[in-house]
Design a protein around this nucleic acid. Structure first.
Length: 146
RNA sequence: CGAGCAGGCCGGACGGUCGCGGUAUCCCUUCGGGGAUAUGGAGGAAAGUCCGGGCUCCAUAGGGCGAGGUGCUUCGUAACGCGAAGGCGGGGCGAUCCGACGGAAAGUGGAACAGAAAACACACCGCCUACGUCUUCUUCGGAAGGCCGGUAAGGUUGAAAAGGUGCGGUAAGAGCGCACCAGCGUCGUGGCGACACGGCGGCUUGUCAAACCCCACCUGGAGCAAUUCCAAAUAGGGGAGCUACAGGCGUGGCCCGCGCUGCUCCCGGGUAGGAAGCUUGAGGCGCAUGGCGACAUGCGUCCCAGAUGAAUGGCCGUCUCGGGGGCUUCGGCCCCUAGACAGAACCCGGCUUACAGGCCUGCUCGUACU
RNA sequence: GGCCCCAUCGUCUAGGCUGGUCUAGGACACCGCCCUUUCACGGCGGCGACACGGGUUCAAAUCCCGUUGGGGCUA
């Protein structure tokens, strides 16, 4: 078991596998592998802020806009257009990306806001392929340990 | 056993764990929220948005014109373009399947090309020369030819040619006469009815209405981003018009009518938060009764998703249904693999389209055996 | 989510309501020839399309139904 993120999928948790666990608030008594509504980008203005001043990392499956945000912690937003596929396909892609964010958040080097835009090729990915692609992408963006 | 027809049903199961969103109770709170426990969280099509309703607003949806839809009958239903039972026509040996299936002697139109002719029929090739008349010949009986004509049996064209077949009849023919068949009208019988059967009559009135149209019936318009409430924000500016014999808006084809308005319209500027609507409903399940059936009635029982940048997912284990591969002593054994179409957005009833695989019931035909 | 519209040569379009020589017309583009010393302009000719599947009809780009793919409006 090389990947510490895989521990989110196992019943036993190890505190030493969380290098950046201190970025979570003191009041939260839940585990590190969560994705509550406060950590999502939900407003039009937040989306606009990320799109306007951010770095862009691209591969053939996803486009990732990311901007470092020290105060507010990490937040993620999604954009999956109808070009990706029908409703079932789009929902699956969004679930995979949420699951990736949930399980890999403790590995991030710095808190940042980012929006992931799915491209049509992402429709054919399985969850494992999706995780591999996203890890490479965020490592190139410089916000993920690897 | 093989081939087939119809109807109904299922659309992996159980468990662990990390998450996501709903509800209830309790606890904490810096009043923003956070936490614990319990409970339940996609479909047969949730899809396409093709019909019909409920609901909300506009007048409790009113009148006229226009526009659109439906189209054998009778039932069922809240309603329907849906369903059931039947009629008629067509396909199939059959079980059964398919059908926009009212009206063309109300009207207006269309039918390219071909063909004589495409709709108050016509006369190209044919057939006939009885009647009338002319010429020639004559064995004085008549014969041949022409004119005036007759005819729709046959031929050609076409998607389609003016009832069909047979006998009689005739100069040749013709519903001209008759028989049967088709069609039309009418009467009787059966049926609620579509229609069926039988008698009689005069003999024939083609096709397209998914061309306009006629007839019957139906439809007011918009849609939960409807609509209502709370909070916040800007109220300031520029331009134009109107002073009632009227103007504007609601109203989405128009007119009337109705309602609202005292200022109205245009340009420019600002807001996109929260709550209600939001899930108890023509509701599901079971039983009984009525009905051939669709369905209805009664009783009992259950509460079963409500998000809003938008919840159902990730991983692991066990077991099954199929599928693939290998071994085989043909009994089986081992390995791999949950795998179709597809994701609620106000809610129902249908229709249509997509769909891996599987189950049940009834029936038909063929073969074999008893 | 809801409500609408559209689909014709490579591109922009005409025809569709009223079905038939529509073998689907035009413009630009492309190809060939002529003109010119050459290019451009001009002239002549050519290539080239009814989104898909059914139905009605003798006959469908046109009428009807379904499917697919685009686009718009709406708090």
């Amino acid at each position: 078991m090389q990947d510490p993120a895989d521990q989110a999928n196992s019943p036993t948790l190890d505190a030493s596998a969380m290098p950046h666990a201190d970025q979570f608030s003191e009041t939260s008594r839940r585990g590190p592998y969560t994705f509550p509504p406060a950590d999502r980008i939900r407003k039009k203005s937040e989306y606009a802020a990320v799109f306007s001043n951010s770095r862009k990392v691209v591969d053939r499956y996803f486009v990732c806009y990311l901007v470092t945000q020290e105060q507010q912690g990490s937040k993620m937003g999604l954009a999956v257009s109808r070009k990706v596929g029908k409703a079932v396909t789009r929902n699956r892609v969004k679930r995979y990306l949420r699951e990736f964010f949930r399980t890999h958040r403790p590995l991030m080097t710095a808190p940042c806001h980012f929006v992931i835009v799915a491209r049509p090729a992402a429709a054919a990915l399985s969850y494992a392929e999706c995780v591999r692609a996203m890890k490479r992408l965020l490592q190139r963006g410089g916000v993920l340990d690897g």
